[in-house]
Design a protein around this nucleic acid. Sequence first.
DNA 1: ACCATGATTCGATAGTGGTCGAATGCCTGG
DNA 2: CCAGGCATTCGACCACTATCGAATCATGGT
Lengths: 118, 118
Amino acid sequence: MPNQPLPVLCCSPGTGHPLSATEAGELARVFKTLADPVRLRLLSLIASHADGEACVCELSSAFELTGPTISHHLRVLREAGLIDGERRGTWIYYRVRPEPLAQLPAMLVRAAPTAVSA
Amino acid sequence: MPNQPLPVLCCSPGTGHPLSATEAGELARVFKTLADPVRLRLLSLIASHADGEACVCELSSAFELTGPTISHHLRVLREAGLIDGERRGTWIYYRVRPEPLAQLPAMLVRAAPTAVSA
DNA sequence: ACCATGATTCGATAGTGGTCGAATGCCTGG
DNA sequence: CCAGGCATTCGACCACTATCGAATCATGGT
């Protein structure tokens, strides 16, 4: 199906309805979590790290921000279920939980046959 | 390639680097636009409309919000390049610009082979 | 020319969120 | 058990934004 006219964010899972208020609320909550450059960089830093995990000290040193601020952003990401923290001795290591992000595009774009592939 | 271990948001377009500060800033700007339930519903309402366009009066009547508030959200969407408005007589019709949303998933997920397909 | 209606703009207000400094928790090493 | 460092929590401050009412602009009909 190469040319469907309406590629964009139009439907709840199977149907052709627009988003309900509650669906929109949940989606917006995810986007709100991602709507901060520091959090995006934190996520990508963790994900691009060798073992898929990074300790807070490494993450902090990548920004010109205080510890509490980094901690705040990590907390937001953690409470959104996007990352997971584990203490090992002195340090705390974070790793990305792939599932919620992986299902995001599916929620967003229902049928974008042309432009997405790249 | 069925099982790559790190499916998520890790890389700038071709490389293995984490997001740069400016890349993260641009991405965050898009997410911020989408991080509101009203705007998400507006987008989906427009996209799911018969001709791919909807007039403000129809959109307004779908919410329990005042005219100025809807106008504000439409303006945010318009300035983000996600929709486009055109006046025809008394009414103003909005339609979705598919491109920016279509390229979003590609920016977000670099390789999420398993979970995305659905 | 005027009025009615659709939509935006303006100004003000309340709520939210990012940031910091200080204080607290938690673990390791002496 | 105490000292030191990593990380979080707490409290406060500032900026931004969602929302509204009132005013303004634009169009079409009378």
